[in-house]
């Protein structure tokens, strides 16, 4: 078996500030990797480098593509990278407004990826979109509503449906439950968890919420000041943290 995604020596600076430094890891098929750390620790920069949205100064990201074999994400032509990112990949933004087209209906939002790869049957697209609304627990009769008429939690679920409709193999998630009410968060976590299981997705999830990380991820990387200070099995990192920073993070959670 080959890793699905490999990062080697990834480094990215913004001016004098190091956003991520010398990050190495392999993501294996079916794995959900969590990247945790406080704000400013370089999590999102790393995620963007992995997803090809940001070019690292040093290092490489290789991806084992179903269509093209093993490819260097940052060496790919833009055409291929964009094609990958709407067929084999998904990207769930913290702010659903960035990941959705707010001016068109939910159905059009979900259908876009299908149409982008050549779906041309309105009825079929609509049926698929409607099934996906159902899967993300949005009433089917909201299919023709625009996301502007949706609540925050519904928007996030719509964004998830819009990404997963093309049955990607790898999903990048940036604080997918950030900024939502706790009850709404729980629903999204549960949804993501069951979708990841049933679709055999691999995922890289950035979060500062260790509870989210425990529920969704198999493995954790703890980042501090742009560097990975600890990584391992999620429950092991959280229950037996080794690094001083991880111990501090774990100790700062309020017990429930």
């Amino acid at each position: 078996m080959k890793p699905l995604l490999s990062a080697k020596g990834l480094t990215r600076r913004f001016g004098a500030r190091v956003a991520c430094r010398d990050v190495d890891f392999d993501l294996w098929p079916g794995e959900v990797l969590g990247i945790v750390g406080e704000s400013g620790s370089g999590k999102t920069t790393l995620l963007n480098c992995l997803a090809g949205r940001l070019t690292p100064e040093l290092g490489s990201v290789t991806y084992d593509s179903a269509a093209y074999g093993t490819v260097d994400v940052h060496d790919l032509s833009e055409a291929r990278r964009r094609l990958l990112s709407r067929t084999e990949w998904g990207f769930v933004n913290q702010d659903a407004r960035e990941g959705l087209r707010m001016g068109v209906s939910a159905g059009a939002n979900i259908g876009e990826r299908l149409m982008a790869v050549g779906a041309r049957h309105y009825g079929d697209i609509r049926r698929t979109a409607s099934d996906w609304l159902d899967r993300v627990e949005i009433e089917r009769d909201r299919l023709d509503d625009r996301p502007t008429a949706y609540s925050g939690g519904m928007r996030q679920r719509l964004q998830i449906a819009r990404n997963l409709v093309s049955e990607p193999r790898l999903v990048f998630m940036d604080e997918p439950t950030g900024g939502l009410d706790v009850s709404v968060q729980a629903r999204i976590l549960d949804l993501l968890r069951s979708l990841v299981d049933s679709l055999h997705l691999s995922a890289v999830l950035v979060t500062h919420d260790l509870g989210v990380a425990r529920l969704l991820t198999h493995r954790l990387m703890v980042m501090q000041g742009g560097a990975v200070v600890e990584d391992g099995l999620t429950d092991q990192v959280l229950d037996d943290p080794q690094h001083a920073y991880t111990q501090m993070l774990v100790a700062s959670i309020l017990p429930v």
């Binding site: 833009e78 087209r101 209906s105 159905g107 876009e112 149409m115 609509r126 023709d144």
Partner: peptide
């Protein structure tokens, strides 16, 4: 320009979809 260069025309079809939906 990028969309044309890459023949990435899903968004055009989205607008037609939206028209039928409305």
């Amino acid at each position: 320009r990028t969309l044309h260069a890459l023949s990435e025309y899903g968004v055009m079809q989205v607008s037609l979809y939206e028209s039928i939906a409305r």
